[in-house]
Lab assay of single mutants.
Amino acid sequence: EALLLQRRRVTVRKADAGGLGISIKGGRENKMPILISKIFKGLAADQTEALFVGDAILSVNGEDLSSATHDEAVQVLKKTGKEVVLEVKYMKD
């Protein structure tokens, strides 16, 4: 459990079709971090076996998301290339 509370760096390699394969919720306007709300089976994020629903995305390719709005986070995630480095931390409810 202590492991979950540490920052983790996960590299996601996207397939030619399909994006990261995650849905996010939260954002500055909700006074919440950007959280992974869904991981789609078989897509890139799922294949890492290292990302979990409830993980907060702290940064994407080094771009800090700690004070991002939901829309800003969506845009940052959309413009990523084939390889995406996510810094995440599991957030307890």
Rank of each mutant, 00 (worst) to 15 (best):
D46W: 13
S23P: 02
D71G: 10
V60L: 05
E1M: 09
G62V: 04
A45C: 10
G21E: 04
T69V: 03
T69H: 04
A17Y: 12
D64P: 08
L58V: 08
V85A: 09
M91S: 12
I39D: 03
E49Y: 09
D93C: 07
V12F: 05
S59P: 02
R9E: 07
E87V: 09
D71Q: 11
V76G: 08
D71C: 08
S66V: 09
I39T: 04
G18S: 11
A2K: 14
E72A: 08
G26Q: 00
H70Q: 13
R7Q: 14
D71L: 11
L35G: 00
T69L: 06
E49L: 08
T69M: 05
A17T: 14
D93T: 09
I24A: 00
A15E: 12
L4H: 12
L43M: 11
D16P: 14
T48K: 05
D46T: 05
G81D: 09
T69Q: 04
I36L: 02
K92D: 11
A15W: 09
L51R: 02
V10R: 03
V12C: 07
L58I: 10
E63P: 01
A50T: 08
S23T: 14
A17F: 12
K92F: 12
I34D: 03
T69N: 07
S23R: 13
S59H: 04
K25E: 15
L65W: 03
E49D: 15
K14A: 09
M32T: 14
D46P: 05
A50I: 04
I57F: 01
G27W: 02
V60E: 04
V60P: 01
S59A: 12
G54N: 11
E49Q: 15
S66T: 15
F40K: 15
L58P: 02
F52Y: 14
F52E: 11
L43V: 05
I57Y: 02
T11D: 05
S59Y: 06
K38L: 03
T11N: 08
L51A: 04
F52P: 02
D71M: 09
S66M: 09
V88M: 00
L4C: 11
R9D: 03
G62L: 03
A56C: 10
V10H: 00
G62I: 00
L51Y: 02
S37L: 04
I34R: 01
I36D: 04
E72G: 05
L4A: 07
L3V: 12
R7H: 09
A56N: 06
I39G: 04
E49K: 12
R9F: 14
K25A: 15
S67K: 13
A15H: 11
Y90S: 13
T11A: 10
L4S: 09
I36A: 02
I22Q: 01
E63K: 14
V10C: 04
S37H: 11
F40L: 10
K14Y: 08
S37N: 10
K92Y: 11
G18C: 08
G54E: 05
K89S: 12
Y90G: 09
M32G: 15
R9L: 14
K38W: 07
R7Y: 08
D16N: 10
L35C: 08
R8P: 01
V88W: 02
I24N: 00
G18H: 14
T69K: 06
V10G: 03
Y90E: 07
S66N: 09
L3W: 07
L65E: 01
S67T: 15
E49T: 11
A56W: 06
E87Y: 07
N61H: 03
I22Y: 02
T48M: 05
A50D: 09
L51W: 02
S37F: 06
L4D: 14
F52V: 09
V53L: 05
N61Y: 02
Q47N: 13
K38Y: 13
V84G: 13
K14L: 11
M32K: 15
V60A: 09
I22T: 02
I22P: 01
V53I: 09
E87C: 07
E72Y: 12
V88G: 02
S66Q: 13
S23Y: 07
G18M: 13
I24P: 01
G21P: 06
V12Q: 00
L3N: 14
A17C: 10
K89P: 02
M91I: 08
A56I: 09
H70K: 09
G27Q: 00
Y90V: 05
N61L: 00
L3P: 09
V12K: 03
L20W: 06
L3H: 08
M91Q: 12
S37P: 00
F52K: 12
A2N: 15
K25R: 10
G62S: 07
H70P: 05
D55G: 03
R13H: 15
S67A: 13
G21Y: 00
M32R: 07
G21M: 03
R8K: 02
I57G: 01
I34P: 05
Y90C: 13
L3M: 11
E49V: 06
G18P: 09
V76I: 15
D93Q: 12
E1Y: 06
K92H: 12
R8W: 00
S37Q: 08
K89V: 11
E87W: 06
M91F: 11
I24C: 05
V74F: 05
A56K: 05
L58G: 00
G42S: 08
V88C: 06
G54I: 03
D46M: 05
D64Q: 06
G18Q: 15
T11H: 08
A45R: 04
K38G: 10
K92N: 15
A2W: 08
V12S: 00
D71P: 07
A56D: 02
R8C: 01
T69P: 03
F52Q: 11
Q47T: 12
L20H: 04
K89F: 08
V60D: 04
A2H: 15
D46K: 04
K92A: 15
A15Y: 14
N61T: 01
F40A: 12
L58W: 04
I57P: 03
L58K: 03
E49P: 06
I34E: 03
L77W: 06
G27C: 03
K38F: 07
D93F: 09
L51M: 06
D16F: 08
R13D: 10
I22G: 04
D71F: 10
S66R: 14
K89A: 13
H70D: 04
V74G: 05
I24S: 01
D93R: 07
E63C: 13
G18A: 12
A45H: 05
V60K: 01
D55L: 01
E63T: 14
I34A: 00
V12L: 10
K25P: 03
L3C: 07
K89T: 10
L51F: 06
Q47A: 11
A17W: 11
Q47C: 12
I34L: 06
D64M: 05
A2F: 15
I22V: 08
K89M: 14
G27S: 01
I22L: 10
D71T: 10
T11I: 14
T80P: 10
L20R: 00
L51G: 03
D71A: 15
G26L: 00
G27Y: 00
E72D: 08
N61C: 05
A15G: 10
E87P: 00
E72K: 10
D16M: 10
T69W: 04
K38C: 10
T11R: 08
V60R: 00
S23H: 12
R7I: 11
D64H: 04
S59I: 04
G21W: 05
K25Y: 13
R7N: 10
D46A: 14
V10P: 03
R8Q: 03
A50S: 14
G62K: 05
D71R: 11
L43W: 10
K25V: 14
